[in-house]
Write a protein that binds this DNA or RNA. Sequence first.
DNA 1: GTGAAAGCGCTAACAA
DNA 2: TTGTTAGCGCTTTCAC
Lengths: 331, 331
Amino acid sequence: MPTIKEISAITGVSKSTVSRVINNDPKVSEKTRRLVLDAIQETKYTPNIIARSMITGKLPIVLIIVGDILSYHFAKPVVGIERVLSDTGYMPVVYNSMYDEDKEQAFLDMAKQFKFAGVIPMTAIGSEQLARTFHDIDIPVVLINKKIKRSRFDAVIADEYEAGYLVTTELIRCGSHRIAYISGPNINSRINREREQGYRDAIIEQGFPIDENIIFKGNLDIASGYEAAKKIFSDPSITAVCTNNYLMAAGVNQYAAELGKRPLENYDIGCCETVSELNSGDIIYAGPDLQLIGEKAAELLLKRMQGSKEPLQNITFAVENVHNPKAAAFV
Amino acid sequence: MPTIKEISAITGVSKSTVSRVINNDPKVSEKTRRLVLDAIQETKYTPNIIARSMITGKLPIVLIIVGDILSYHFAKPVVGIERVLSDTGYMPVVYNSMYDEDKEQAFLDMAKQFKFAGVIPMTAIGSEQLARTFHDIDIPVVLINKKIKRSRFDAVIADEYEAGYLVTTELIRCGSHRIAYISGPNINSRINREREQGYRDAIIEQGFPIDENIIFKGNLDIASGYEAAKKIFSDPSITAVCTNNYLMAAGVNQYAAELGKRPLENYDIGCCETVSELNSGDIIYAGPDLQLIGEKAAELLLKRMQGSKEPLQNITFAVENVHNPKAAAFV
DNA sequence: GTGAAAGCGCTAACAA
DNA sequence: TTGTTAGCGCTTTCAC
């Protein structure tokens, strides 16, 4: 691996001048620039980024932390981030925490230690410890779908209330007025709260009553949707189910299938987040464009990494997709 | 951020000794070790990995390159890799190429430049250029599901033939003997070839004829499965479809749904790869345990990163999962 | 068992 | 416009 020193030796110019050429310093004569550039070409020299980062104090790597790489919800924004970051010289890489806070902690520490250029966390922040790590992090951060109290970071968040409201409205439009709801486990979760509130408001606004007995609580996984479905389908007056997330809806469908019931045929089913193309065939949903969210976050991060001192941005994404496979029937 | 220098100043010992303590050099007296360790604790000192890597020439990062982060096929092994690498001091990160060879090339170059400790590519290698990059890469590499001619790397690959054979056998077991097949676009692809051969052999072994007219070619995406399905369902003698990958099977199901046909009810459907839990409800498949593949690859890589000079390993993974939701009916 | 000194490859003043 | 010097934080001889 050739170094700046060898280039210097070959061309006869000093290491500094070679460095200047590499970094496009304008005050280098065209002649020496050519000379150096030629030598670089011949030797296939590439600058040692590690050595450089020792001085600049930054490694041009952007760390994206996701809670679950297997989930569309996390994976899709990554595609957006990568789109924006490609050709900027920054290297976006993904770390998958599987919701393990200790691992997130460890990676955040690493990001600091490695002096990564930026971090985009899309993950659950819970513990005090983790909050503290965020508090005294000294590299640019853009949060996705996460609000930290008194945060110093830009954030891009989805309008969860609107998602809950719109999907429920759609369910009503399909003819239901007794719609069960399966929420997440954590009452304090903003996302959970807002989605449920959207559901409630939609029902009330359409002039129907809220029945607290058909609002259930799940763990956001398939199994808990399945469990809740047992109770839901024992009440024949319920004609539709709205779930916080897709996984629980899948659980509901699973139980329904065992009963010989088909989604969007024998009952309506909806959820408050964007569903992958692969699974959206028989579910109603409302949610943001996940790729766009990633793109926006990357744009904000890019500005910060380039030194922007603009005031904090807190962007709320409207629901772009209201997906209803049955819509054709009554449009 | 405290440095080795400050620890040296606080304790009164030299930088070298501090370095020795950090690196567990045995020839340090218990007394000074304690002294230094205490100072490290107090100041919350952590060694600067970048500076260290300038000397050792390696950054303890393992790069996993995947073709499509949205695909279970790529994402699941990542979970396995991370499981093995956790607590080894190596930092596994994922890069998603979206099948873009230029990007893969760029990342491979970066991995070299950054002196990453290792690379696990799970992606399509095509161009001469990319092959050359692999040829003169100087860091440990373990390939997943990829064979490179005269490769210098360990590899973990799935038994594609067996997958094709077993899923077809299962389809036959369900009562079909006229089974359409949808292959991938590339005849030269090993995976494509072997899966199809498995299909052919299973049919022949059960004493049925191969009909070349019901073997179609797709692009591995939903749309091409959908297109092929148009022809398939125009032939009522066909009672089952076997596809190379899951996406095309989803396309078949999509078209079938428009016809009012239900999978595993009005026709049987299978594919030659492991399907995510989320989507395996109404499809038959055979495939390896994807997480295990990731784990095995990470184990091999770990050994190499630790300097092992064992002979090359080329591990073929047997099909661990044969999934048939209808099986209960006749077991 | 410990310290001094050199140096990894690069950038960033400061001179010239 | 170019070269010289110092130094980023660490490891690693080589003495003592």
